[in-house]
């Protein structure tokens, strides 16, 4: 799978070049600070941008011409399967959409269901109950004992 390796390196390298461009562009466009400082807030971003650019280019070059030589390949990596990934991403999207209005417990129970499904579970009732119990206990533990606020949604308001 030397080709696959080199492909990843090239794409990530290109991504880093883009990131470097963004870093340098943003830094150059930032208003100069009115406060005096011997080394201003731009020095480090420029340095980071320059290093990112060099590393990105080096990765692209090695990815294209290096044959993916010195990378530790994971043997027998299964190809990406779309279904589980879609369940997982769906669960994450539901979670972020619902957590504010419907509340942590409801959003987490749905997230739990979807992730369990993504890992091949065929027992939605068990997963739903387990997720609900876990979310409820975690909410009580974090909000009650440790004073960490997770917001108040539909179910949380009942208590």
């Amino acid at each position: 799978m030397a080709g696959g390796r080199a492909f990843g390196e090239t794409v990530i390298g290109a991504g880093l070049v883009l990131l470097a461009g963004l870093v340098i562009f943003e830094t150059a466009g930032a208003p100069a600070s009115p406060l005096y400082a011997r080394v201003g807030p731009q020095a480090f971003p420029y340095a980071v941008g320059a290093c990112l650019l060099l590393l990105g280019l080096a990765l692209v070059l090695r990815g294209l011409y290096g044959g993916g030589r010195d990378s530790a390949a994971e043997p027998g990596l299964a190809p990406v399967r779309a279904r589980p990934v879609l369940w997982l991403l769906g669960g994450l999207a539901l979670n972020v959409a619902l957590i504010g209005e419907a509340g942590f417990i409801l959003a987490s129970t749905l997230l739990f269901l979807c992730v369990a499904r993504a890992f091949g579970s065929e027992r939605p009732l068990r997963d739903g109950l387990a997720g609900f119990a876990l979310a409820g206990i975690a909410y009580a533990g974090f909000a009650g004992l440790l004073g960490i606020s997770l917001g108040r949604g539909l179910i949380e308001r009942l208590f």
Partner: peptide, 8 residues
């Protein structure tokens, strides 16, 4: 399935 759902 339960382990990774719990982690998330």
């Amino acid at each position: 399935p339960l382990l990774y759902a719990g982690i998330l």
